[in-house]
Amino acid sequence: MGFEAILQILIQGLNMGLIYALAALGISLIWNATGLFNFAQGDLLTVGGYVMLSMFSHWALPYPFAFLLTCAVMGLAGYMLSQGYFFPMFSQGLHPDIIVIGTIALTVLVQNGILLLWGPQAQRFSPPLGDSPVHVGQVIIMPYYLWNIAVVVVLVALLQVFFKKSILGIAMRAVAQRPVTASLMGVRTNHLVALTFLLATGLAAVGGILIAPVIPLIPEMGGLVALKAFAAVLIGGLGSFAGALIGGAIVGIAEVVFATLVVSTYKDVFIFAILIAFLLVRPRGIFSAEISEKV
């Protein structure tokens, strides 16, 4: 296999991996803040894609405006979801393992809501840089691959600055690391947990916006992405910012490499075999999720 073929495989894998990484990041954020695995994260990603579809394709808003508005709307939806759905469960003192069932119920609600609002047909909107492939030697690159990579890189940089430099970001990290201490220091933990939901859902929306040109939107798409995102979270290191990103990239690239070099039929088996191996040998993932590293 030549260099160009390898490069092509890596690009294909990285493109999917970045989408998994965005979903994984949202899962990690919520886990850090609440100790909860949100199985609906993939479905929130799908909703983000559909909201963008409405704003960009149906209402013909300019792409950048529709992009930002979608993130804002979804962030707000995430905030309201925390207030109206999760906080009542938290306030009842339910164990997070039980609330996980609530997140699974949420996936069913969201998928059927999408079905009602947008219908069952697969839908897609045009990517911002067009649909014509770019040839670099023998390597073929879709412009939206580059767009997706650029958006994720910028987003990650902004998130790093936000968590390291801003008061709000530092407070969110404090709540994730030492919730009781943060509370005693006067941090409104509930408010910050709600803001974490806002941020995680906004990130999911970005994932949905970026994925729609790659995979046409269908109501149950999020569940399929979420499965890989959970694998990415656990391989990368649960709760780790870098782990979510690297885990996503590993899952995306590994599945394409395995399918190309070994057999496509068992690529999912391969990914989940890696996951099982990590759980047995290095259960805290690549980045071991040191508490100081938590987002």
Binding site: Q8, I9, L224, S264
Partner: peptide, 20 residues
């Protein structure tokens, strides 16, 4: 001859093998 699973999202490996 290539195969895929239902609900797969990416088929680049199979298609690149076909191309080759």
């Amino acid at each position: 001859v290539q195969t895929f699973n239902d609900n797969d999202q990416d088929f680049s490996a199979q298609l690149l093998a076909i191309k080759k």
